[in-house]
């Protein structure tokens, strides 16, 4: 009986925590669809705010989508070979490289953004282009791609698999194409989801890196929160949720521990 009480206590607590996380999400979705949030739901439901956001801010949405896809492309090209090398050689040098790569995540985004501005801010064409933001996003998301791929590569016996392929006559590029890439597919996919999600939501750096012509979605959100009525901020948040929902669900699926398969030894 005592154990049952403990169970209910923990369950209640966990339900409370879930409510803490989910209630504001629900509230904000409702607010974005309510005619007047201050009056409440009685004022009726409307898509007016969502449409207003779409007409006023759709550029930020497209820029964020484009930016996150470009960021994904760059992190794939830079990250997969890096992860491969780090998986292949575990020396003091590669550990130091891994450590360095994570620094843009450990160091606050503000500092990185300031550093980029003081170094490259003078290149006017670069400073005002979306590429300037892209650089920041790649710095910030690259470690996630590298780690995600590296985790999968370290879990498989990469060295032996490659030796196996080599013993069958496969040269380096054939091995990379036939063995390495297919076997870290799960890591690449998880890393890609993470990169796109993070790039889509990055604000710490972007706030300093952006210009009036290169506003991303989170920058627009901050604008809306600061200057517009609650309903518009909520509607904008709703649009943001709709965009990242598939990404978040995908991430959750990857984060969940998978059941391990068991194969019985057959008697032969």
């Amino acid at each position: 009986m005592k154990h049952r009480g403990l169970f209910l206590l923990q369950l209640g607590f966990t339900l409370l925590v879930s409510a803490f996380l989910i209630v504001p999400v629900v509230l904000s979705i409702l607010a974005g669809l309510t005619v007047n949030y201050f009056v409440g739901l009685e004022s009726g439901l409307t898509l007016r705010w969502v449409i207003e956001v779409w007409t006023g801010y759709r550029d930020t949405i497209f820029l964020s989508i484009g930016l996150s896809l470009a960021c994904l492309a760059v992190t794939l090209v830079l990250g997969i070979p890096t992860a491969y090398v780090l998986a292949k050689r575990q020396t003091a040098l590669t550990r130091a490289i891994e450590e360095l790569l994570v620094m843009p995540v450990a160091v606050p985004g503000l500092a990185t953004a300031l550093a980029l501005i003081v170094t490259y801010g003078g290149l006017a064409g670069f400073r005002t282009s979306w590429l300037f933001i892209l650089v920041g996003h790649v710095l910030f998301t690259l470690p996630f791609m590298v780690r995600s791929v590296l985790a999968v590569l370290s879990a498989i016996d990469l060295q032996t698999l490659e030796e196996g392929a080599a013993s069958l006559g496969a040269g380096f590029w054939a091995r990379f194409r036939d063995i390495v890439l297919p076997n870290c597919r799960a890591g690449i996919l998880a890393g890609s989801l993470m990169v796109v999600t993070l790039s889509m939501g990055e604000f710490n750096m972007t706030w300093l890196l952006h210009t009036p012509l290169t506003k991303t979605l989170p920058v627009g959100l901050a604008d809306a929160y600061a200057s517009l009525r609650l309903e518009i901020g909520s509607a904008y948040t709703l649009v943001f949720f709709l965009m990242i929902m598939p990404l978040l669900l995908g991430l959750q699926a990857f984060a969940k521990p998978r059941p391990t398969k068991f194969v019985a030894e057959e008697t032969e």
């Binding site: 032996t160 030796e163 196996g164 392929a165 013993s167 069958l168 006559g169 040269g171 597919r185």
Partner: peptide, 28 residues
């Protein structure tokens, strides 16, 4: 090794998890 044309069997088998049995046997 890829130019020596020797067959090798590893202690951990080193079978490619991304291929079927037939895919593994036919890879070389």
């Amino acid at each position: 090794i890829e130019q020596r044309n020797v067959g090798m069997v590893f202690q951990s088998y080193a079978l490619f998890p991304n291929m079927t049995v037939a895919g593994n046997v036919g890879y070389g």
